[in-house]
């Protein structure tokens, strides 16, 4: 057997490049955050000068009480969607799934619509109902998958997720049909487009107790995601309690997603596209790919929200922007790389 290499030499290349790029992403996110703080449509159309923070009390209030929580919310939303997207993709061994799977998003939409149409439409009701039905979406997908007698665990869960999503979507359609076209229907439509225009400090503080622990759990278990992306037999032979670890990670991902979605509405494509770009950038090992996806998700969402709130004098729905950009990037990636998406 040959001499053992010095460990530093083995660490080299991939890991060091990955670390550099992670640091780069973090710096880029910090810069964008700072820039975004001064970006807006007051007093001029694009830019709030830093001096206004001292001189203009209205600008001061706007920046600290409206803009800052909104920026933080954008960062949180991006991180949560990208992190849970990475979790779903690796746990289901399928690079083309995100929270749209498992009936999470469909369940949350149904819950929100139900809140608007049948439960009085108070914001708290809408949010709670969305969160509950998002979790119910996962739960019913899971329970259904346990009972399906076809395929392996992963396939069963995906099939169950598709069925449950379809069920909730038809329920949402029914609610839209029954909704008051003048009062309720616009609200449902607006919620389903997603956006951060009404985010204030209380909103951010309400989701933090759920979102932060969930993100920490996912981050701490990130190397295990690699193990969970192996076949069951192999994971078992490595001593991994795959079922239990999957459940913990899924629960963290879904709870965080439901909490975020209940405040912002549906923001599509971040969870699907961002993990792919992150893997291209730092490699597929979740030890680096997950933090990279979180930083990139935050960057992407923040950028989209900046556009959403400054491009026009009115507000563009964020969900439409992320979908537009996300789907565009998705097509670009597929066209540029004939072998398909980076897995």
């Amino acid at each position: 057997m040959t001499e053992r290499r010095p460990a530093t030499e083995i660490v080299s290349r991939q890991t060091q490049q990955g670390r550099r790029r992670l640091a780069l992403l973090a710096v880029a996110l910090g810069c964008l955050l700072l820039l975004s703080f001064f970006l807006g449509r007051y007093p001029g159309p694009w830019w709030t000068p830093p001096s206004a923070l001292v001189e203009d009390p209205l600008a001061q209030r706007l920046m600290l009480h409206l803009r800052l929580p909104r920026l933080l919310a954008a960062v949180l939303v991006g991180m949560v969607l990208a992190a849970s997207g990475t979790c779903f993709q690796m746990i289901f061994r399928n690079p083309l799934v995100d929270s749209g799977f498992l009936g999470v998003s469909a369940g949350a939409s149904f819950g929100a619509s139900l809140g608007i149409v049948a439960l009085g439409g108070a914001p708290v009701t809408i949010q709670l109902s969305a969160a509950i039905f998002g979790i119910l979406g996962l739960l019913s997908s899971y329970l259904l998958s346990v009972r399906i007698r076809y395929g392996d665990w992963v396939l069963r869960l995906v099939l169950a997720g598709i069925a449950v999503s379809a069920l909730y979507s038809s329920g949402t359609s029914l609610l839209k049909y029954a909704a008051d076209p003048l009062r309720q229907l616009p609200e449902i439509t607006f919620w389903m487009m997603g956006g951060l225009w009404n985010i204030t400090w209380p909103h951010v503080l309400q989701i933090l107790p759920v979102v932060l622990p969930a993100l920490v759990v996912i981050l701490l278990l990130r190397w295990r995601l690699n193990l969970l992306s192996l076949r069951d037999e192999t994971a078992f032979s490595l001593g991994v309690s795959a079922g239990r670890e999957r459940l913990v990670l899924l629960l963290a991902a879904v709870l965080a997603t439901a909490a975020v979605v209940s405040k912002t509405g549906l923001i599509g494509w971040v969870g699907l596209i961002v993990p792919h770009i992150a893997r291209r950038w730092v490699g597929s090992d979740a030890q680096r790919a997950l933090p990279a996806a979180m930083l990139l998700g935050a960057f992407f969402t923040l950028l989209c929200d900046d556009i959403a709130r400054t491009a026009l004098s009115g507000e563009l729905p964020l969900g439409i922007l992320t979908s537009l950009l996300g789907a565009g990037i998705f097509m670009l990636l597929m066209l540029r790389d004939p072998s398909g998406m980076r897995r």
Partner: peptide
């Protein structure tokens, strides 16, 4: 330790990873 019959990797881990 097990070397399964046909290990399929979905994600592009490097050989070392």
């Amino acid at each position: 330790g097990l070397v399964p019959q046909n290990e399929t990797l979905v994600f592009e881990l490097s050989v070392l990873e």
